[in-house]
Design a protein around this nucleic acid. Structure first.
Lengths: 358, 358
DNA sequence: ATGAAAGCGCTAACAC
DNA sequence: GTGTTAGCGCTTTCAT
């Protein structure tokens, strides 16, 4: 029985120590790369551990010294690609440095107090990455009270002293607008998200500012209320298309809304980008899969997740993070849903503005 | 200091016992609803525990008696709604019976051996629900070897003796075909998924069988290869639409592929359902958000997740599960992407088949 | 009905 | 450089 694999219970440190003819402590030190072990002993211990398939017991380690090398992620929803991408970045970063990542999901129906959840997570994880649901100001309070390293990922405004990772919504939205403007569009519709402080309103603000900066009037009729969903984007876009003077371009607050808008535009018998240019925000994987593929503003989701892990790890290891607020850059991804106004054929170059309308 | 909340370390059982003036064991018994405690004592212990905010330490409990009341879910991917819905069902079911659910995600890049992952999960969880990536036969082997309660959710064929939860793909696909047939369609295209044993091929088989059962020829040209993705569905549908005699209805192997087909149909200047009827499979949330909303076959994803938890819990509690293989029923969800052939206007009633073709 | 002792697997602290 | 002891928070077993 050289490999007591699944034979008689899991392989423990005691087994390793015994085989190596050393004490548990020496074995522990050797395996954890601590000093105070001769190179020869260390090598032997490691060899044996590998041979018999030893793996530390995280529960025991957590109980003993408070460290499990596990980080927990609190996620509000697992049915959207946005969060999925964030998780990919976090997970890969964690595993790269020999940590594990576990995801805890929030559900509406099963009531757990915030405090309860955080305590559970603290019992097995060394730190927490929190992706908060919209408008969860109460959760933020619980986060403050928790005595555990925490990083907030993709925050929604209200967060104060906790380290946060986010991307630059204002800048991203500005880029989107400049892109459209450069293509010659001046009647640009905006599909909003929820009307509360956060990414959605930051993007709307940029929309208004850039328009103003270019000496263009911000027409309230061109701002159509949506809610981050495809259905919401569809309805909001449809309203815009029903306008006497419909926009020649639409900027959707996020990709999902843009997908809805795409449906609405095609449904109206119009073509993207020939009749209407469309730009989204986020660059979730699906954005590259529509037809035409969506021009959008990329949030570096994977990078954000990675960054959250690194910030968290710094905290866990007691390294004082210089700036607890990381803002990552966005990027314009030009695909096929936007085109120059002149290409629409509806408004010949040089006549711009003269013959607009349905 | 009545509530030693975050003051000096977490509240332990010892604190509760001390306050109640009983031994730890009595406190433990009282809190766990075990016998051997007088009603009065029990009540008092519970009162105090609640008051000072006691919560068992899962790491300690796991170490002590092997039970954490946590179930782990192994998920191959967190960027798709299908899995998200499965997880909702599982999570809610678990929390309803006072278990917690934690999700462990697989990533391509960070190599962990299957064995390694399972051992980690076993160290903190009481059981595992495995949602396997496609073609992961090697994972199944590791699952067999693992000494922990396991349930496979949404299996892909090859699974043998392990308990599994799945829905009836063959029946669902048959329903889809019958629906189309009842609407008068006879030229029905099929958008396939990956060509390997599993849901995709089961659905294809049903497509072929039902056609044959109705005395219709299975035209290989109407079977177009896709891959479960939107892009794949788009390309596959486009090929179908380019046929001399294009189908009047398309059955997509899953909803994502149907979304791609929707794009392709609209792109060809055709209308759904007026020119082409379209039906998907799965009924992920997005299916209700497209325009037109997608007719599809619902897999009871939430129910499947719930069922997996219940089956797992039975195993954990040593109850011998009668049938370790649960197959849940699918359901036809008629929305707006399918319509009677006569309504297409291309083939007048009574003349069916006479003037088909582009 | 209640309690004391021992131990789950590990590591911090202190020996030697 | 290595070993011993104690203890993390809990529950088992075996008293009483």
């Amino acid at each position: 029985m050289d490999k007591p694999l699944m034979s008689d219970g899991p392989v423990t440190l005691a087994h390793v120590a015994q085989r190596a003819g050393v004490s548990q402590m020496t074995a522990s030190r050797a395996l954890n790369g601590r000093s105070g072990v001769s190179a020869k002993t260390r090598h032997e211990v490691v060899r044996i551990a590998t041979q018999i398939g030893y793996r530390v017991n995280v529960a025991a380690r957590k109980l003993s010294n408070g460290r499990s090398r596990i980080i927990a992620v609190l996620a509000p929803d697992l049915t959207n690609q946005f969060i999925g991408e964030l998780l990919i970045g976090a997970g890969e970063a964690a595993r790269k440095v020999d940590y594990e990542m576990l995801v805890y999901t929030l559900f509406d129906e099963t009531r757990r107090s915030h405090d309860e959840v955080l305590r559970l997570l603290q019992q097995f994880a060394d730190g927490l990455i929190a992706i908060l649901p919209r408008g969860a100001t109460d959760y933020v309070k619980a986060l403050y009270a928790a005595s555990m390293p925490i990083v907030i990922l993709d925050h929604r405004g209200e967060v104060a002293a906790l380290p946060t990772i986010a991307s630059n919504h204002y800048e991203g939205a500005s880029m989107a607008m400049r892109h459209l403007l450069e293509l010659g569009h001046t009647r640009i519709g905006f599909l909003t998200g929820p009307d509360e402080p956060g990414a959605s309103t930051e993007r709307l603000t940029a929309y208004q500012h850039v328009l103003a900066q270019h000496g263009l009037r911000v027409d309230p009729h061109l701002i159509s209320a949506g809610d981050y969903t495809q259905r919401g984007g569809f309805e909001a876009a449809r309203r815009l298309l029903g306008l006497k003077k419909r926009p020649t371009a639409i900027f959707a607050v996020n990709d999902m809304a843009a997908f809805g808008a795409l449906d609405a535009i095609k449904d109206a018998g119009l073509s993207v980008p020939n009749d209407v240019s469309l730009i989204g925000f986020d660059d979730i994987p699906m954005a590259a899969q529509t037809h035409p593929p969506l021009t959008t503003i990329r949030q570096p989701l994977v990078w954000m997740g990675r960054s959250a892990v690194n910030t968290l790890l710094a905290q866990i290891n007691g390294i004082d993070v210089a700036s607890p607020r990381v803002t990552l850059p966005t990027e314009l991804v030009v695909r096929a849903s936007t085109a120059a106004l002149s290409a629409t054929g509806r408004v010949p170059v040089g006549t711009r503005g003269a013959s607009a309308g349905v």
